[in-house]
Design a protein around this nucleic acid. Structure first.
Lengths: 164, 164
DNA sequence: ATCTAATATCTCGATTTCGAGATATCAACG
DNA sequence: CGTTGATATCTCGAAATCGAGATATTAGAT
């Protein structure tokens, strides 16, 4: 066995390491599950959010799938070409494009979502329910706090160039 | 305020959502911090692991930076070209290539690691120390469990094609 | 009303990452 | 020994993602 522990004595650094590892391990489940349906992770994300929230602006979708806006355009393009999603200009704000599922798109996500959900339950199932709840609270605090602090620090100077 | 909560009633799915969000938020700190040094996240990862562990096989490095082997080759190539890392064939196992820092590489990582560590402490600092320890335990269990279950399930059939 | 700053979306080129497969070596076993 | 299966590294082309910036629109302040 090689369960050698990565050894940052500093709990904060260790937390970052185990967070990254846990995310990676669970994400592999997600990726493999979604690959069954010939979809990419972010494509699935778009379908899923539109399925559960209904018509939404692109920027709202972007927030939830955690990628940059240019990537959002790219993924939405693919889904539109596939006939699963449709774009529509917003009347209220003419900068905004609204996204919604086509009937075909709704059919797809309705069929595959339960299967994927089951995979994700399996993925995180090593943690018993009460611990899951604890983890949810802690991760929520951690995530919100980190997002907050990120906005607050838009001022780290480039300190050095390690090489030309 | 739009603190509207993503509403999976299922705790397992909610856990997955908050895990992804927390990772994303903290990773933005990491990315921004490392960008100060004109390095990519995985490049930094390679330097860091070699700094703390000494000479290691490529596959060992790969395990720790959480990317696929082809990406590892790509990143190592760049670091070698920059003169920060060196490749050396292993005597014990001729399949293996050993990686180590050059003096220049060691100089770089020694200088920047403390600054990055400080950024990461700041990133996860919204969680008080006792909660950090709790989170570490929970995430470790979650991550190891998910990795375990992933190996165990190399048998999900492609179930359907949503579209041609 | 006008000006300025912020927001939303998209374009385009570059970078990063992956996936499948090629090659070489090692390990285990008969 | 020879075979078979696992492991380590790398190649190559495709896919995903980003970053900077262009454009249009809105919101806020004066």
């Amino acid at each position: 066995m090689k369960r050698s522990q990565a050894p940052p004595r500093d709990p904060a650094l260790l937390l970052w390491v185990v967070l990254a590892r846990a995310f990676d391990a669970v994400e592999r489940h997600s990726r493999a599950s979604i690959a069954r349906f010939r979809l990419g992770v972010t494509e699935f994300g778009v379908l899923e959010v539109l399925y559960h929230k209904g018509e939404l602006p692109v920027c709202e979708v972007r927030r939830r799938i955690l990628v940059e806006s240019s990537s959002t355009t790219y993924v939405v393009d693919k889904l539109v070409k596939r006939g699963l999603v449709r774009r529509r200009p917003s009347a209220a704000d003419r900068r905004v494009t609204l996204l919604s599922l086509t009937p075909a798109g709704r059919g797809v996500i309705r069929r595959i979502f339960p299967l994927h959900a089951q995979s994700m339950r399996q993925a995180v199932g090593a943690l018993p329910s009460p611990e899951q709840r604890q983890a949810i609270d802690l991760l929520r605090t951690l995530g919100l706090g980190a997002a907050e602090r990120h906005k607050a620090s838009v001022d780290l100077e480039p300190l050095a160039e390690p090489q030309t």
